[in-house]
Design a protein around this nucleic acid. Structure first.
Lengths: 151, 151
DNA sequence: TTCGAAGTGGGGAATTGTGGGGTAACAATT
DNA sequence: AATTGTTACCCCACAATTCCCCACTTCGAA
């Protein structure tokens, strides 16, 4: 299984195309013919996109499909599945980000692609910087979280 | 089996025609000759329509048929089956939405077509946006729901 | 310095979404 | 039964987007 990590700063051109970092291309091609799924994250206030290799997406979708169609479950399923679109890469290794998702994540020219183990996150670079600022998390919460892992 | 996902923002013209997103057309044609069933959702307060490929509809109908004819079951069956109409596509890949269903879902010009795995949802775009707004679900409920899946 | 790989940009053809006219089918009314 | 009006379905046409190809440039490694 492929594992994503690290951040790449790139630019989205006027047609909405973004290069997938070269180091992922061959693994993706072998894993699933570079067939991907792009969608929104679970929390409706988060402004970013998530990109799954198709096999990984199948796993996500199977979980969502099993949820009841009530309250927050229905919302979650409708949101995530309802935004998920197929992505393939062009001969230059770029993906075309669908317009609805572009503005759902407020993407403009400067993009950050962030590896997160089983998926890639696609951020507007300014929003990513803001989200990573130290004041975005309280020191106490961070301490508490740290207590649960050994790094 | 075909799997629907992703949102398409489209317009319904003055004749009540809506284009089925092109990426679904060939799969639908192969699966069932693009014969579909359109009806209302289970909850009478939801303002949207649901669109099933015929084989999928057969499955839904079989479940409804097995229900007892009492109380809420009868209501459900009467509502869903009673509103269901056949849909075919014209040569341009558009469906004609029956007038009763158009105003049951308060459709006007701007439409959102939302893939939900085994069916498509048809929304008025403004109503869809409202339904997907973050304040439609409490952060706590969403957290709880998220605890049951790994994305 | 040269080479290759990676990221970026753009031209042009094909596809997709949209609008509208014309005609056939159907229903309702006279 | 004839007429009118409405609806549905065919065709064509236009505009925007997407897709495919080629090319430039930058950067790091040999």
């Amino acid at each position: 299984m492929i594992s994503f990590s690290g951040t790449d700063l790139l630019t989205m051109d006027t047609k909405g195309r973004v290069a997938v970092p070269a180091r992922y291309r061959q693994p993706l091609s072998e894993l699933c013919g570079a067939r991907l799924k792009i969608t929104v994250p679970a929390k409706p206030t988060d402004r970013l996109l998530v990109l799954y290799p198709l096999p990984e997406w199948e796993h996500v979708q199977a979980q969502l499909k099993a949820l009841p169609s009530t309250g927050p479950y229905e919302f979650l399923k409708r949101r995530i599945v309802g935004h998920a679109k197929d992505i393939e890469l062009d001969k230059q290794g770029r993906m075309l980000v669908p317009p609805e998702l572009r503005d759902a994540a407020q993407l403009d020219q400067r993009i950050a692609i962030v590896g997160q183990i089983n998926k890639l996150e696609i951020w507007s670079e300014p929003l990513y910087r803001a989200a990573m600022a130290p004041e975005q998390v309280s020191a106490e919460d961070l301490e508490a979280a740290l207590a649960e892992v050994s790094l």
